[in-house]
Amino acid sequence: MKNVMEHESTISADTAALHAMTDAEQSPAIAFEVNDLSVWYGQKQTIFNTTIDIPAQSVTAIIGPSGCGKSTFLRCLNRMHELVPTARHEGSIRLFGEDLYAPKIDPCVVRRRIGMVFQKSNPFPTMSIAENVIVGLRLNGVRDRAYLDERMEKALRMAALWDEVKNDLNRPGISLSGGQQQRLCIARAVAVEPEIILMDEPCSALDPIATAKVEELIYELKKQYTIVIVTHNMQQAGRCSDYTAFFYLGRLIEFAKTEKIFTNPSQKQTEDYITGRFG
């Protein structure tokens, strides 16, 4: 039940090789190989011995009742959980074969390669729309004005926001509506050209119309990015993900193709959760 493609992964650590493979429309490559991951905050263990392989170039949804550790798990993928001083983990996480927690790896590099979109949209309040999009590049040392402008437009187009804001690029980012702000945050994450985008309940603060737009966007982004999305909304997981992982009380209960999880789960707990009997 663990992972349908576990034995098909024959990928070298070389990213280029991976792209070649996916381009050749072979069976999906593996982005994250998580092996026996356990996480503690202080004395409290929040993730228990989780092993999972998350496929590249697809959308993986992580579902489960609140407090099940799904957010913690997501934050381990780009080392954001390290910001909590008492956090500690065991086990390994590899991205395209490379150990994200190797001593010589800078967490900044990890986070550049793995972008993140948060539950509450958080454009920087002192910056204009344009500045918000390119801030990741600018503060990471990119000075070339023409290149920044080009990336800005591209990222905004990719976030399906360009047409709405192209005449107001100098307005403050926080002057946009809630849904636009969230898409601005997606543009900001996309602008640094990460390989992966993590989304932590990106629609939970949005109205249904804005949610639909973001979901549409996820569908588009999937063509280029590996997306891991945490959601407590099962319909959303069903609508926009290819694979679904179900977490309960800090443990991975089941991971499979989304159709299978929702139509024919192999675990009793998953079925109970899907059918709304608890959580």
């Binding site: 780009n78 954001m80 910001l83 900044c108 590099v109 990890v110 986070r111 550049r112 390669r113 972008g115 993140m116 948060f118 509450k120 958080n122 920087f124 309040p125 801030v135 990741g136 503060l139 990471n140 945050c185 900001r188 994450a189 640094v192």
Partner: peptide
């Protein structure tokens, strides 16, 4: 949220503190 958003872009902590 602003600190997290900046760090998640791979911006170094000191730059995050100064610029954000």
């Amino acid at each position: 949220g602003y600190r997290e958003a900046a760090l998640a872009l791979g911006i170094a902590r000191w730059k995050m503190t100064l610029h954000i």
